[in-house]
Write a protein that binds this DNA or RNA. Structure first.
Length: 342
DNA sequence: CTTATTTGACCATC
DNA sequence: GATGGTCAAATAAG
């Protein structure tokens, strides 16, 4: 168990070092430095997760975020803090604002997004940020195939639509590898085409939310020619339905010591010297259908902002905020920022 | 029987 | 005319 803790603490230290340097930085952040730092942090946590998974009960490990979050084309930074910053729990500002305050200079767009009411799961799921990925699509189309005004929609859109965003998603290693990864939305396949100069057919999906037929979200899924283990998923138009997948289940482990709110150890994550092994931890309560955060973000490319992802169920003040940035047009990097209170 | 998927045809765009 | 996107009938699955 000591080696697990050592790896976790190493990862936390890397994250802490990065946070310190970001807070102290007066000038613009060097993306290259940020990239390397994030890779180091993600790799450190990933190593820890692999060890934990190899030893912990499968019911815990199958939902861990960190191991599922690695992939090509983007970088994740996972920053765990255990602190007594009760200003976070004081109410008033939204979860969005609170979490955003943690990374004041990291990405200017993010702050402006928040100011504009960017997506926050706790408050306004999937509200979208047009400034980053383009505007909304054309007029809604009814199930009959006609728009609300009775006109027929155009049947082809050869031009690249505004509002589209393409992501590369690793093929799931389990289950049917021909199926696109589940992003939490109820997609319905409506077509498939063989594409010129492509080795794999392209499948067309539209949102199948029963409760909101006017949703115009669509996506195209195709295996990448250069990497059959990767899907290229192109999202066209944003969701206008209420079927936003639920990102809240980030089952993780919290020290049982935090239940008593007696963490005054100065921030090393080990309350009062109590053993901080798996045997001293308890799983965060599951709140809904398990949907991996990675998939949720891939299905919500416009969802930028802070997300209230989980309540520990163990302590009123033990709340985790998930801070996600998914800027496809910003070199494909993302930063996840998780804050455990108490 | 209902719902989802497949697939050839159709149409707009290049 | 070639190509990509969509429709809708046929088919499969639950």
């Amino acid at each position: 168990m000591d080696d697990i803790l050592s790896q976790v603490f190493d990862a936390c230290k890397l994250a802490g070092d990065l946070e310190s340097s970001l807070r102290l930085s007066a000038g613009p952040i060097d993306p290259g430095f940020l990239l390397l730092s994030c890779e180091d942090i993600a790799g450190a946590f990933s190593d820890a997760v692999h060890v934990i998974r190899s030893r912990a009960p499968s019911s815990y490990t199958s939902h861990l975020l960190f191991g599922e979050a690695s992939g090509e084309g983007y970088v994740q930074a996972i920053h765990l803090l255990r602190q007594g910053d009760h200003a976070f729990c004081a109410g008033g500002p939204s979860a969005n604002d609170m979490a955003l305050s943690g990374l004041p200079q990291l990405v200017p767009e993010l702050q402006s997004t928040a100011a504009m009411g960017g997506s926050s799961y706790a408050n306004t799921p999937d509200t979208g940020v047009d400034a980053l990925v383009g505007g909304r699509g054309e007029a809604p189309v009814a199930p009959s195939g006609r728009r609300a005004d009775g006109s027929l929609p155009q049947r082809s859109c050869r031009k690249r639509k505004e509002g589209t965003v393409t992501q590369r998603v690793p093929v799931l290693r389990t289950g049917n590898m021909e199926m696109p990864p589940d992003d939490g939305y109820p997609w319905r396949k409506y077509g498939q085409k063989n594409i010129l100069d492509s080795s794999f057919p392209r499948s067309y999906y539209r949102c199948n939310d029963k409760s909101h037929y006017r949703c115009e979200a669509k996506k195209k899924v195709q295996k990448a020619d250069d990497d059959p283990s990767t899907f290229e998923v192109t999202y066209c138009s944003g969701h206008t339905c209420q079927a936003s997948p639920i990102p809240m289940l980030i089952p993780t482990l919290v020290p049982s010591g935090s239940v008593n709110g007696d963490d005054d150890d100065g921030g090393n994550g080990n309350p009062q010297g109590a053993p901080l092994g798996l045997e001293a931890m308890q799983p965060v309560a599951s709140l809904s259908t398990p949907i991996h955060m990675q998939n949720w973000l891939e299905g919500n490319p416009r969802s930028i902002g802070a997300l209230l992802v989980a309540h520990s169920g163990l302590c009123e003040r033990s709340v985790a905020f998930f801070h996600g940035l998914w800027a496809q047009n910003k070199s494909h990097f993302s930063v996840f920022y998780v804050v455990f209170l108490d």
